[in-house]
């Protein structure tokens, strides 16, 4: 939600509004073919999955043939591919994302699950930015010192360990042994998201730390930094204003794209920690071949990615005024 709301900010803040406005419009126009292309591809993939989803509903015992026919008609599974896609897209534009195999509208399912996933992603994003950037910047400034080596080694360890192992260790240490956080579930709201968010953020956090450190170290060697120092500027000003702003460009690129990944990539985390979010829903739906749910959620994630990407491109200009929108 913050994601969507903050979209309006650059529109207001930017001084050369017309250029940026035109640029934004062109970018948003590009959403249309991407949207159709992505939904079509996802739809085709789900359609091409072998096996009959209706048959899989009932497990070991086959469904009565009469029931199979009734269900196939209900979900238009007896129609040819292009017709199914046409029906789906038409309904989407009327705000109807179809219904899952239980008969509930997918729209409601998504609205139900969205807050959990957004909260988890935002919290993870917060950890990523605060811890990752701080560690990276401090390590960059104290290059070669103990803290720098500590960051390099610990991030390497985190990158090397798969996320489900991290989750499991987190549960045992902080949940069972120390009892600081709930082991799983969503009954305590934000608080129960702390541990999963940290686990979810860990990998990106390590990348952000390494990326910002490297970028900062590189920029500190640049001519303009030497000039700034020669002018007699304080170290904090040299690093905080001049160097950091330039060093952040690759980090921002990574962060924005990663926000999309955090929302879409929470499948494992949500499953381990029993969180009722989009990731768990799409995982279940993919296994049951519930096309409407998979496509609905995937389409939503596509939109999130597109907006995140747009945000990055807009933020470039804020960080580096030399970049022009044309």
């Amino acid at each position: 939600m913050v994601l969507g709301c903050s979209l309006a900010l650059p529109l207001v803040a930017d001084e050369e509004g017309t250029d940026l406005g035109r640029y934004l419009i062109r970018r948003v126009l590009q959403f249309i073919p991407v949207f159709f292309g992505a939904t079509f591809l996802i739809f085709a993939l789900v359609f091409l999955m072998p096996g009959d989803p209706i048959r899989a509903l009932s497990g070991d015992k086959p469904l009565a043939p009469e029931v199979v026919v009734a269900l196939q008609e209900r979900y238009h599974l007896d129609e040819p591919f292009y017709k199914q896609y046409a029906i789906y897209i038409t309904n989407v534009f009327q705000g109807d994302f179809g219904s899952d195999f239980r008969g509930y509208p997918v729209r409601d399912l998504m609205l139900d699950r969205l807050p959990v996933t957004i909260r988890l992603a935002l919290l993870a994003f917060l950890f990523e930015v605060v811890i990752g950037l701080t560690a990276g910047v401090v390590a960059g400034v104290r290059k070669g010192k103990f803290f720098d080596s500590l960051v390099l080694v610990s991030t390497l360890v985190v990158i090397a360990i798969p996320i489900f192992v991290l989750g499991f260790i987190g549960q045992i240490v902080f949940g069972v042994k120390l009892g600081w956080f709930p082991i799983s579930g969503y009954r305590e709201g934000w608080y129960s998201l702390m541990l999963p968010a940290l686990v979810l953020a860990s990998l990106s956090l390590a990348y952000v730390a390494r990326l910002s450190r490297t970028s900062l170290v590189e920029n500190l060697r640049a001519d303009y930094v030497r000039t700034a120092r020669a002018k007699g500027l304080s170290t904090s000003r040299v690093i905080g204003i001049h160097t950091l702003r330039n060093s952040l460009i690759p980090v921002v690129t990574y962060l924005a794209v990663d926000l999309g990944a955090l929302m879409g990539g929470a499948i494992i985390t949500e499953t381990i920690f029993n969180l009722p979010g989009l990731g768990r829903a799409v995982f279940d739906a993919a296994r049951a071949q519930e096309g409407a749910v998979v496509i609905g959620i995937a389409t939503f994630l596509v939109i999130v990615y597109m907006i995140a990407n747009l945000l990055v491109d807009v933020l470039y200009g804020v960080l580096d005024p030399r970049i022009r929108y044309e």
């Binding site: 309006a8 998504m110 969205l114 807050p115 939109i303």
Partner: peptide, 10 residues
């Protein structure tokens, strides 16, 4: 889109 994203957090 913004409204949809914001209202989902109700």
């Amino acid at each position: 889109l913004v409204v949809a994203a914001c209202s989902s957090d109700d």
